[in-house]
């Protein structure tokens, strides 16, 4: 009797130890990621055509007027770095939400056409309608939600099959990219940099005015997503299990989709659809923290880190200045192929 009890207690203790170890790893990884984000953020402010020592940068950030550094750091580098972090967080959160909910890393908003839709709408609002500022974001989010619904309806055939959804989303994305090119061709003149922004994403020309809508969206929608992260994790186990565990499945799902698409669309309106960012952040975060717990916060941190690093690399590592989306595209595309190879090997449901 006591023997059985002892074994049970030992088992419980072992489980608790395992959980504690996993939590510890998760926390460590998140703290490390946050530190890295902060470090790269600081580097971004200091490094450039002219180097400014940390003291100058700190004084500028605190609002002092430093000759030279005041403009370069305060007006050029700071908004760019802030936008990089916010956009990275938005794309990371949105991507991880979709990937977790649909249980498929390929089902991220930038692969299934949602970012392309937001981008086409933003380009349309700017180039054709001559809008600027918040109305552009409204167009982007309306298009993002519309495309999400469209892809869902197109791939719904008594249940949504994974691969079908992904392929249909890719098809929709191809069309929307064509629309973007068409819209850009209506601009007074073809600007390669502008085209790259709306097709692969770029941080060039970041301003505080551009940062503000994304920041507001993140402040509102971010907490909504995070507050549902437990429900999101439960949704992974299927609708019935989730319902049995007390999650209001349909309501939660709609809320999650709206919040995720909102984040993606607002970020896209500011930076363009940074290639493969939403797709990359979640899987990298999961790889780092292990498969336990909600992937949202780690994915957000990884997203921010990726954008900062990719932008730094794109600007200074080569002779040419690459827009951030080109760098993430070159990084992300092989990973996409790798995922497909792995899924095929393990006999996925394709």
């Amino acid at each position: 009797m006591t023997g059985a009890l002892a074994t049970r207690e030992a088992a419980v203790a072992a489980v608790a130890r395992g959980r504690a170890r996993r939590d510890r790893r998760r926390r460590t990884v998140m703290v490390l990621l946050a530190l890295l984000v902060a470090a790269v953020f600081a580097t971004t402010l200091m490094v450039g055509r002219t180097f400014y020592p940390p003291a100058d940068v700190v004084r500028v950030v605190l609002g002092e007027d430093v000759p030279g550094a005041g403009f370069t750091v305060g007006r050029l580098r700071l908004p760019r770095a802030v936008l990089a972090v916010i956009a990275g967080v938005c794309f990371g959160l949105g991507g991880a939400t979709f990937q977790t909910m649909l249980r498929n890393p390929l089902a991220s908003p930038d692969i299934i056409g949602i970012s392309s839709g937001a981008s086409a709408a933003a380009a349309f609002a700017i180039v054709i309608l001559g809008l600027g500022g918040p109305p552009v974001s409204v167009f982007a989010i309306a298009a993002g939600l519309g495309i999400a619904l469209l892809v869902y309806l197109l791939s719904y055939r008594g249940g949504v099959a994974d691969t079908r959804l992904v392929l249909i989303g890719i098809g929709v994305g191809v069309m929307l990219d064509s629309v973007t090119v068409y819209v850009l061709s209506r601009a007074p003149q073809w600007e390669l940099q502008e085209a790259l922004r709306w097709l692969t994403g770029s941080l060039n020309g970041s301003t505080w005015a551009g940062v503000l809508p994304v920041l507001l969206a993140l402040a509102v929608l971010g907490p909504v997503l995070l507050s549902r992260s437990r429900a999101l994790s439960v949704l992974r186990f299927g609708d019935d299990t989730a319902a049995a565990l007390g999650v209001r499945v349909e309501r939660t799902r709609v809320l999650l989709i709206v919040a995720a698409v909102g984040l993606i669309s607002f970020a896209t309106a500011a930076t363009g659809p940074i290639a493969f960012l939403a797709f990359l952040s979640g899987p990298i975060a999961t790889r780092l923290t292990g498969p336990h717990g909600s992937p949202l916060v780690p994915a957000a941190l990884v997203g921010a880190l990726l954008v900062l690093v990719a932008d730094l690399v794109g600007q200074f590592a080569f002779g040419t200045r690459y827009p951030v989306g080109v760098v993430t595209g070159v990084l992300g595309a092989p990973y996409l192929l790798y995922l497909i190879v792995r899924a095929n090997r393990s006999g996925g449901s394709l």
């Binding site: 691969t163 992904v166 290639a275 080109v326």
Partner: peptide
């Protein structure tokens, strides 16, 4: 299978598009 081949194709295509830009 048709879907697997198509997925491999469009993914390769996306990858190459990025490389071409770079």
């Amino acid at each position: 299978t048709p879907l697997k081949l198509a997925l491999a194709g469009v993914a390769t295509s996306a990858a190459f598009t990025s490389f071409i830009t770079a």
